[in-house]
Design a binder for these strands. Structure first.
Lengths: 118, 118
DNA sequence: GTTTTTTAATACGATCGCCTATCATGGGAA
DNA sequence: TTCCCATGATAGGCGATCGTATTAAAAAAC
């Protein structure tokens, strides 16, 4: 959860809750409840302050990254980036890719997975 | 402001406030007040729903692209990353994507270029 | 060993985020 | 012309966010 990631990053930066509170202007009681996931839906202004002081992109705070325990599952790793570069170099457009995604999604919905074709 | 960017992106996607409300599950009155900057500090869950449906990274919603983005022509920009996330969320594998790229490349090679533009 | 400081947690309250309900306007169909 | 629907805006209210104040425990200083 986001609280876990905030705490993890804060410890990586060798920072206490009080120090983070001082630098962000957010009271430490709220930071404590965020880190312990008692609060789970902070506002964007709160999160931007935290990500700025912790020097980490918002996306990395919000979602698991490769550095977390679950790596490369659901996240974009170098292989995907290579494929995207290859696609753009081949002249494939975003619209074409969007259509491809839609078609694959529709395939999965229409037919349960049983087809085994090469 | 963030409301301006939400509206701009919504219009780019040819979507009304009511349609965006239906897809995000956020009431249109709140979306309207966000776009008109009557509300300026939405929660992260609200913003994630909006950015997901509008297919735009959070950072692009939060900040002007010109001032923040490092993307340049030819490289992978935020929209591509968004599409890739959508693809992985749909269960599309790298192998499937690679096959798609190959098929598109072969399509282009099989059909000789008849357009003479320049 | 005692005191001070730092750290994190807890209780409570005020403001605001985001909801429901409704209104005003314009376009299309009957 | 009237009715229906979609669109965007407005009013009011409840529950959540995020603040203040305080407490408890551990570490550092004397």
């Amino acid at each position: 959860m986001i609280g876990d990631r905030i705490k993890k990053r804060r410890l990586e930066k060798n920072m206490s809750i009080s120090q983070l509170a001082n630098k962000t202007g957010i009271v430490k009681s709220y930071l404590s409840s965020l880190e312990r996931s008692l609060q789970k839906n902070p506002s964007i202004q709160i999160l931007e302050k935290i990500s700025h002081v912790l020097e980490i992109p918002l996306d990395s705070l919000l979602h698991d990254k490769a550095s977390d325990s679950r790596s490369s599952s659901g996240s974009i790793d170098d292989e995907w980036l290579c494929l995207v570069r290859e696609a753009t170099n081949s002249g494939i457009t975003k619209e074409q890719f969007q259509a491809f995604i839609d078609s694959k999604s529709n395939e999965k919905r229409k037919r349960p997975v049983e087809r085994k074709d090469g």
